[in-house]
């Protein structure tokens, strides 16, 4: 290409900015703009200053975002890519307050069960509810400060959902599993929370294809609580959740939920995109 022999004048710059030039002429203008700072400056009156200021504010906010957290680095180290690690780390139900709350609640139920076996029903009630609530919370638009990032992530919502769910669920499964060997009752009874917990979590996700995630989780929580309380009140059995009928029902619910989730996963991605 020869030296610049022509430049845009104000009139052509204005017409280009307004989209009032043929696409061939626009192509010329665009190729020229890449190489000519003087003509690039002619575009400045075409974009309002307050619009540019607004965009700049958003850029500053993103550029100055806090550095990587411990969890983020840990996930990255485990082979999760950087963008996903960031999105998991900002999951509301993985922030300190929620994690501490989960652990304390489980610990209290655990201690209570140590002193009085009747309190086992409290432990068996809470252990399945916490992961489901955590999962529902991870996708509530109101509770997620990162919902804009989530909505704009290049990853599919399903992919993000899977990683977030795995981390959230393990954050309450791990303490519950650690506590289980020390609980009263048989080893089988102490692990009775596992099947209902899986069913509640997957069930929350499956229902979220039709309902808001927090509504789905609340509904299942009430259902599970009524099963446990009913067992305790009517049968005076703190281990009612460990009975074969409840366990089988949980496994059945888990299978159905998983099937629904598998079929409806695109719907779920759509729902999540809409709420976030």
């Amino acid at each position: 290409m020869t030296n610049e022999v022509w430049h845009l004048d104000g009139e052509l710059a204005g017409r280009y900015a307004d989209g009032r030039v043929t696409s061939v002429l626009a192509t010329s203008v665009e190729q020229h703009l890449l190489r000519c700072e003087t003509c690039r400056r002619l575009m400045q009156p075409s974009v309002r200053t307050d619009r540019l200021d607004h965009i700049w504010d958003e850029i500053v906010e993103r550029v100055e975002a806090p550095g990587t957290s411990l969890l983020e680095r840990l996930l990255h180290w485990c082979g999760v890519d950087e963008a996903t690690a960031r999105l998991v780390a900002v999951t509301p139900s993985l922030r300190g307050a929620w994690l501490t709350g989960t652990t304390v609640v489980l610990l209290l139920a655990f201690l209570a069960a140590q002193t009085a076996p009747q309190a086992m029903s409290a432990f068996l009630l809470l252990a399945p509810v916490l992961p489901a609530a955590g999962v529902a919370l991870s996708f509530g638009p109101a509770s997620d400060p990162a919902h804009e990032i989530v909505a704009s992530t290049p990853h599919s919502a399903v992919h993000l959902l899977a990683v977030r769910t795995a981390v959230v669920v393990s954050s309450s499964f791990v303490p519950a599993a650690l506590a289980s060997p020390f609980l009263p009752g048989s080893a089988w009874a102490a692990m009775a929370w596992l099947a209902p917990a899986l069913a509640m979590t997957v069930g929350t996700l499956a229902l979220s294809t039709r309902l808001a995630p927090h509504v789905a989780a609340s509904g299942l929580t009430i259902l599970w609580a009524s099963v446990v309380v009913q067992g305790f009140v009517r049968h005076h059995d703190p281990f009612f959740a460990a009975t074969p009928s409840v366990q089988l029902a949980s496994v059945a619910a888990l299978v159905v939920s998983a099937a629904v989730l598998l079929v409806q996963r695109r719907d779920l991605a759509e729902v999540l995109r809409r709420v976030s």
Binding site: Y16, A17, G19, A26, E30, L33, E37, R40, M43, Q44, S46, V47, R51, L52, I55, W56, I59, V60, V63, E64
Partner: peptide, 22 residues
Amino acid sequence: SAVALEVLYRRHASWLVVRLAR
């Protein structure tokens, strides 16, 4: 340098907005 980023932004944002708008 965030200052440099802002100078770069002020210099280039307008024509980028116009070109993207097409």
